[in-house]
Structure formats: C-alpha cells, structure tokens
C-alpha cells in the first residue's frame, strides 16, 4: 500500500458504515454474513498471533474456538445469559484448557507439535460430542442471544458492531503486545529459541503465554459465533475447522497484523460469491488456494505491500 492512501482509516470507516450501507441497499441479509466474516477474522487473528508471532504451528485452534461457543450455550442453558459474565467465562475456559495443552505440547516441536495439538483438539471434540448435556452430535441451540446491557444483541446490526469493536480492540491489543517487552522477547524466540534460552529468557513460558493468549481470544470469537449461529455445534471443534482457520491465516499473511482479517474475508467472501453460481464452490476455492500459495507465498497481505509484522 503506498503511503498516500490512508488505508487503515478507510478500512475501518467502511466497516463501521457497513450495516447502514447494506440496509439502504436492501441487502440486510448480508449483515449476518459480514458479522460471520468479522468473527472468523477474530478467530484467525488469534491463531495468527500464535503462528505468526509465536512461531508455533498449532493445528488445534478449533478446540478453543468451539469451547468458547459451548461455554456460552451451556451457561445459557443454566440460566446465565449475560454476555458480561458468559463471554469472559468462555475466554477463561479456553485459556485454562490451552494452558494444560500447552504445558504438554510445548515439549515437542516441528511436525510433532502440529500433531500433538491436533490430537488434543480431537480429544476435546470427542469428549464434547459424547456428553448428552452438550447435545451430542446435534450441538446445543441457544434459546436467545446473550444479553449485553446496554446494547441489544437481538439486533443483527448491534451484534455486527460488537463483533467489529471486539476485533478492533483485539487487533489493537495484539499490536501493543507485539510492541511490548513480551512481544520482542517472543519475536526473539520465534527467530532463534536456542539463543534466547542462552540469553536467559524463559523460552517455554513465553511460548505458553502466547499460546494461552491466542486461545483466550479464540474463545471469545467462539462465544460470538454461538450468538451469530444461534447454536454451538460439534463442527466448530472438528479438525477441519482448525485447518480452515490455519488456511485463513496463511491465505491472509502469516505474521501480518491484518492477515487474519484478509484471510477470513477472502475465503468466506469467495465461498459466498461462488455459491451464487455453483453447487461446487469448494472445488474453485481449493483451486484458488493452490494458485495463491503457488504464486503469492506471503499471502494476500504480502501482495498488498511489504508491511510485514506491523
């Protein structure tokens, strides 16, 4: 992106005005779609923090995403519908689970780390699916959306703005985090764990912190998606969901601040657009992904400009 175009204000301005715009075009249906994009952008951004900043190729992010959704659904079933309580609870449970998983998984590296995170996520998938309380294979519907006084989440546009606000807050928070002492130490660990170890940095603790933060944000995204979809479904926990989130990150740009957003918007947008023309949209999505990874190794953000790790 050249210096003359104020890229970021334009992006956020357009995003903010989206519901009014769609409403006036008579396309209110797409508000729900735009909300989904924002939620997946949040989930992909959280994974991008783990993969791009922490250098940890985690293949089980759906576990935290899905757990967030199930916490909201189960809390609702137990009579707790306040988002002020249920959403932080979703983040806390996702973080706690990630802490336990990370403690074991971070002993391994490379392909083995990919595989062990995948295995733990599958364990969580099968555990949740086996419990009748959580609705088994059918998932768990929400009686209503969470209540977030003073906002009314039953309004589609309000849910959109809340998702947008949370995405913006997370992006800002992760940017500050990356610029902090912690962020610089993490960058060091990503580039050369051995040297950082020798310099006296607690390498595994730094990686664990990164893994847990990413999971907490994914839990929040899951809580949002449960509200958007009106249910928590096992598909959110399945390994293909982890794969999809990872695909969004790689497609958007690993380690790029907007990588998650670009990837989610491009993938979901392409799917939605193709669905208008063909029943077999995944065929073309797959071909497009192959083309991108062959010709643009740094993802879409890499195509847009060289603003890496901003």
């Amino acid at each position: 992106m050249s210096r003359k175009i104020p890229f970021e204000p334009l992006l956020w301005g357009a995003a903010l005005a989206m519901p009014w715009l769609l409403d006036s075009l008579g396309e209110a249906y797409y508000i729900g779609f735009a909300t989904r994009v924002l939620i997946f952008a949040l989930a992909a951004t959280s994974l991008n923090f783990v993969v791009g900043y922490g250098g940890l190729v985690a293949f089980g992010h759906a576990a935290f995403f899905g757990l967030g959704a199930y916490v909201v659904a189960l809390a609702m079933q137990a009579g707790l519908s306040s988002a002020w309580l249920a959403w932080p609870l979703a983040m806390a449970l996702a973080a706690l689970t990630a802490f336990a998983i990370g403690l074991v998984s971070l002993r391994t590296r490379g392909v083995y780390f990919i595989m062990i995170t995948l295995a733990f996520a599958q364990m969580i998938y099968y555990t949740v699916v086996s419990f009748k309380l959580a609705g088994g294979e059918d998932g768990l519907p929400l009686a209503q959306r969470s209540t977030l006084a003073p906002f009314d989440l039953a309004e589609d546009a309000t849910l959109y703005w809340v998702a947008l606000g949370l995405l913006a807050a997370s992006l800002y928070g992760l940017k500050r985090l990356a610029a902090s002492r912690f962020g610089h130490a993490l960058a060091g660990v990503r580039q050369n764990p051995l040297r950082m170890e020798a310099l006296g940095y607690p390498v595994r603790a730094l990686q664990l912190a990164c893994f847990v933060i990413g999971a907490a944000v994914a839990g929040l995204a899951g809580a949002l998606l449960a509200n958007q979809n009106g249910m928590a479904s096992p598909a959110m926990l399945y390994w293909t969901q982890s794969g999809l989130l990872l695909v969004m990150v790689i497609l958007g740009g690993v380690g790029h601040r907007y990588g998650g957003l670009f990837g989610a918007a491009a993938l979901l947008g392409l799917e939605e657009a193709l669905a208008l023309f063909t029943e077999h949209s995944h065929l073309y999505v797959g071909l497009a992904l192959l083309a991108v990874i062959s010709f643009a190794p740094a993802g879409l953000a890499g195509l847009a400009g060289k603003r890496r790790r901003g």
Partner: peptide
C-alpha cells in the same frame, strides 16, 4: 516449502477432491 504452505496446499486438495 515450509509446513504452513504444505498445510494450505494439501487442505486445498481435500476441498477439491471432495467436491
């Protein structure tokens, strides 16, 4: 290529072959 590129490419192959 690195593992991430391989994940993306072969995940794309899954989407293609399923369809």
């Amino acid at each position: 290529r690195d593992h991430l590129a391989q994940v993306l490419a072969t995940f794309a192959l899954i989407l293609i072959s399923n369809d």
